[in-house]
């Protein structure tokens, strides 16, 4: 097995040497910042950078104590809960709401369908900057600042999710739905028992993309969650960043590392789905 993975040594040409050197150098550039973040956490903070430039991890125990410190002495753990709840609720909401609408747009005819769909698709062209301030003002007027619903609800009507699921559901055979109708399925049951299970792959892809977008969302929580109880991970990290905070690099990087763990795990598990999901957005757009 491992032999098969090695490049065939018989074909060393200047071209292949250049190719491999380039590929490895770029790989180092791509991975180094993350590797470095890891090393900073797992290094003895007492050692000056000039002696230990954090090119590899040096102290496992300081890493653990860093993590403990960040979780207990700062508001980080609470922010983590908020971020997890925000992300899970958003994923569930986006999947439910956009799959219900996609089901109708993809498989049925009704008056006004084309116009509604066109309006939603046009919204893909409108930048976030256009809606940010007025949405904030609306949420404020509803009294939803510093609440979970204020964080989650405005992000649920995802035009992108609707577009992606509609494209996918168009491939569900009509006969499948007719068979279910003859079997006695109601309109909702068609959606629940037939369309949803058949769209599993697309739903998983959308869930992953929504996860990455929500977990990394910076600007919306920054605007809506102004009280420390409702801070998300991104805001705590940004607070550590501000010049007044006097936070040391090992604390910042520990917070960063903990924030990076969920996306990294997701990436390791769903690598193919993520890559294919993003690749397919390109070919469809």
């Amino acid at each position: 097995m491992s032999i098969a993975l090695l490049p065939r040594m018989s074909r060393i040409t200047p071209w292949s040497v250049a190719k491999w050197t380039l590929a490895i150098c770029i790989a180092i550039v791509a991975a180094f910042p993350i590797w470095w973040m890891f090393n900073v956490v797992f290094a003895d903070p007492g050692q000056p950078v000039s002696l230990n430039p954090r090119l590899y991890p040096t102290s496992f125990s300081s890493g653990i104590s860093n993590i403990q410190r960040v979780l207990t002495e700062t508001g980080y753990l609470r922010a983590y809960y908020v971020s997890v709840a925000y992300t899970i609720l958003t994923i569930a909401g986006v999947l439910l709401v956009s799959s219900m609408a996609a089901f109708e747009f993809a498989l049925f005819d009704f008056p006004g369908k084309r116009i509604l769909f066109a309006v939603v698709m046009l919204s893909l062209m409108v930048p976030m900057a256009a809606t940010l301030i007025p949405t904030y003002l609306l949420v404020a007027r509803l009294g939803w600042l510093n609440t979970m619903q204020g964080l989650v609800l405005p992000g649920l009507a995802s035009a992108f999710g609707l577009f992606m699921l509609t494209q996918f559901m168009k491939s569900i055979p009509r006969e499948m739905l007719e068979a279910a109708r003859l079997d006695g399925a109601s309109h909702f049951q068609l959606y629940w028992h037939v369309a949803l299970p058949l769209s599993r792959t697309a739903l998983v892809t959308l869930a992953i993309l929504t996860f990455m977008k929500t977990w990394g969302n910076f600007i919306w929580p920054l605007v809506v969650s102004q009280k420390p109880e409702m801070f998300t991970v991104s805001q705590v990290v940004s607070l550590f960043n501000s010049p007044l905070s006097h936070t040391t690099v090992d604390v910042v990087m520990t917070a960063n590392l903990l924030a990076a763990v969920p996306p990294l795990i997701f990436f390791l598990i769903f690598q193919r789905r993520i890559v294919e999901g993003i690749a397919s957005t390109g070919s469809k757009g």
């Binding site: 770029i26 790989a27 791509a30 991975a31 910042p33 993350i34 470095w36 973040m37 900073v40 990455m212 977990w215 990394g216 969302n217 910076f218 991104s234 990290v237 940004s238 550590f240 960043n241 690099v249 910042v252 990087m253 960063n256 924030a259 990076a260 996306p263 990294l264 997701f266 990436f267 993520i274 890559v275 993003i278």
Partner: peptide, 20 residues
Amino acid sequence: VYFVPVVMPLFLAATIWRWI
């Protein structure tokens, strides 16, 4: 490997680079 930076939220990338 080239894709890993994409997985990082932007706020993380910015903070790491700020210190780099």
